[in-house]
Design a protein around this nucleic acid. Structure first.
Lengths: 194, 194
DNA sequence: CTCGAAACGTATCGAGTCGAAACCTTAAAG
DNA sequence: CTTTAAGGTTTCGACTCGATACGTTTCGAG
């Protein structure tokens, strides 16, 4: 009999594969590969500290050279824009163009998933999410990967008042919209209690 | 605030991506791509109805032409063997060579996952698995994909005695070892009751 | 029995991914 | 001011991947 953890692994691998195939299928109309859609999705969620080629490479687990190639294509298609950073001449800031946002919206990548889970109760979804997040955090830590969570779950984030936040790392104020975005410097809060 | 289902989707996508990156990392020493390891893993689990290029293509969600290329490489490296089917001259049977089995064993692909989940209780793992399997089945059905489950969970499988099984589709006897393998013709049993 | 359609597999082509390595520019450190 | 490091780009070769065309074998209809 197979270990319970391995059955879950099989299921997650299968789902991951299916999602990737779905991504490929979705991108065909636009002539985009899965990695391109993943990059667009990331940039639509990345905060101002994390919208760079290097951060994207870390997020995707690829080398910077590889990512540079894919970004070249996205820029050629006018789906993203590149701007030099004002303070640091080495870094490039990546933003979605209106066309890029439009493409993401039209694809509606989450519809099928939402439908597939509409029968499940929120409590069970929440429980499953918790298990997987633990596994994810452990695997990321073990392999030296960053967690790329949102500021709201980051221990650097300081909630100094109603709708008023400050990042303890950069000492900068963050809007209530921005604390829901993904950050490269994210470090999860310790959760010793269950 | 984000939908609970979407948070789970994010987590699964992230995990799927991480597993893929891990697969890539694992294969580097052997000069193998993720898809090669996936093919080897599939063949190590496929039953006698499912060890063909066509079945593998359906399992991976790729075209047969693409899979044919990857199989060429695996055969060149002597990780798989191809044999013509005795009854049907069109089909090719794929089997892992001893070297292929050895490579899989040495990689130990499941160790990290097992460690990451050792703290979780079997009950919670089981609950999470159930949610994800429902989502997987729904997505597969919706996209016209096969489920590729094991005979033990297939409605064609007949348990006619202690350690004695027959596939209702092919009318052939199956060993108790074989009913734990993956089948292309798998069709899940109906589960109306929870 | 023969002809045609369907199924399984292979070969070829072009666009793109991907890591490795070399390289450039800017920033930081001494 | 020199060295070192960091962010990005470029180039190279092996490989993926879909599309398409092709060859073989099987099966069914007349």
């Amino acid at each position: 009999m197979k270990n319970q953890a391995l059955i879950l692994l099989d299921t997650v691998e299968r789902l991951g594969n299916l999602l990737r195939v779905g991504l490929r299928q979705s991108g065909i109309a636009q002539g985009l590969q899965p990695i391109h859609l993943q990059a667009l999705l990331y940039l639509s969620e990345a905060n101002r500290y994390s919208n760079t080629p290097q951060a994207l490479a870390e997020y995707l687990g690829l080398t910077k050279g590889t990512v540079s190639q894919s970004l070249l294509l996205l820029a050629r298609r006018r789906l993203i824009a590149r701007h030099a950073d004002e303070k640091d001449g080495r870094v490039v800031r990546l933003t979605l163009t209106d066309k890029g946002k439009e493409v993401l919206k039209e694809l509606g990548l989450t519809n099928a998933w939402r439908d597939a889970l509409q029968a499940a109760s929120p409590a069970r979804l929440s429980s499953a999410t918790k298990v997987l997040k633990e596994a994810l955090a452990t695997l990321q830590a073990r392999n030296g990967h960053r967690s790329f969570g949102v500021c709201l779950t980051c221990r650097h984030n300081l909630h100094i008042g109603p709708r008023s936040y400050v990042c303890g790392l950069t000492k900068e104020k963050l809007s209530s919209r921005e604390v829901g975005k993904i950050c490269r410097e994210h470090s999860p809060v310790e959760e010793n209690a269950v």
